[in-house]
Design a protein around this nucleic acid. Structure first.
Lengths: 146, 146
DNA sequence: GCCATTTGGTTCATTTGATGAAACATTATG
DNA sequence: CATAATGTTTCATCAAATGAACCAAATGGC
């Protein structure tokens, strides 16, 4: 088996375990799995379209996620003053509290799951920075091809 | 944002892109997303229970996956001679053909998506080996705690 | 050997969440 | 000013995971 395929499987495994762990950390089960991602991506008020692109989901999917999070009072919609069709999504205080709880937990959680040292995490992070920018660049390329 | 959280998001992204790419490579759409994973895990005849554990899914979920793959003739069930309740799943020739096509594609696909050099992939692989064994060990620990 | 329990898989009803087409309001363009 | 494009929502549909109930075979105590 090639190291690449091996890596793909390992990434799948890690991803799965991370997701399960994050879900377990949400003690009151107020937020479905992937909705956490939105909380993390929402570091500043953003349009739904922009967020959908960030998260690689369809606009209609994002509407549902936003509805759920707004329902539990973690975010709120606000009309974009520049375009009355669009919303600006923003985190509420309650949302910010959960967001920082996630951020606080994430460090310990990640180390415990992966068993990596601080040094190794640094290396890992460095690699993934490169991967991320490559993916984003690729996405941009494919957008142009249409 | 901590490097750990940053990493978690990047892993999520990479995982997503890899999955989409694998699905796109299955030109005739004969195999649903995650069912590929079974093909890869099936390097030797295995019981369904063992496979379910390998893939971190419930037995009932695995039954469905096996049904699908058997339906398209990629695997087949065979009674375990040691236990007449159990099945041994095995790959068919057709399955093996797809398996090796996946393996062949995976190298190029992974490099193109991540943009990493051979050297970096080696480092990555090394890190993930450690992560994997840590996760497996953790799983074992939690099993004992019950 | 016999009954109770455990184990390996399956069935099925339910739930979750993504998808894409159609709709609606607003904005941009010719 | 009419038409096209954009931002979001609605809704019907679908794919797939879940867990409880179930069947059959194996195991263990007596």
């Amino acid at each position: 088996m090639s190291p690449e395929l091996d890596l793909m499987i390992a990434i799948h495994l890690l991803h799965e375990v991370l997701e399960a762990q994050i879900e377990a950390a949400d003690l009151d089960h107020s937020v479905p799995k992937n909705d956490f991602l939105m909380l993390v991506h929402l570091n500043e008020p953003k349009r739904m379209g922009a967020l959908a692109e960030d998260m690689h989901v369809l606009p209609s999917t994002l509407t549902a996620i936003a509805d759920r999070l707004e329902g539990t009072g973690l975010i709120h919609r606000q009309r974009d003053p520049d375009d009355r069709r669009a919303w600006l999504l923003d985190i509420t205080d309650k949302g910010r509290a959960l967001q920082s709880r996630i951020m606080g937990l994430s460090t310990e959680m990640f180390r415990s799951i992966t068993g990596l040292t601080a040094e190794e995490i640094k290396t890992f992070d460095h690699l993934m920075q490169k991967v991320r920018s490559n993916i984003i660049e690729r996405d941009g390329m494919q957008e142009l091809m249409k």
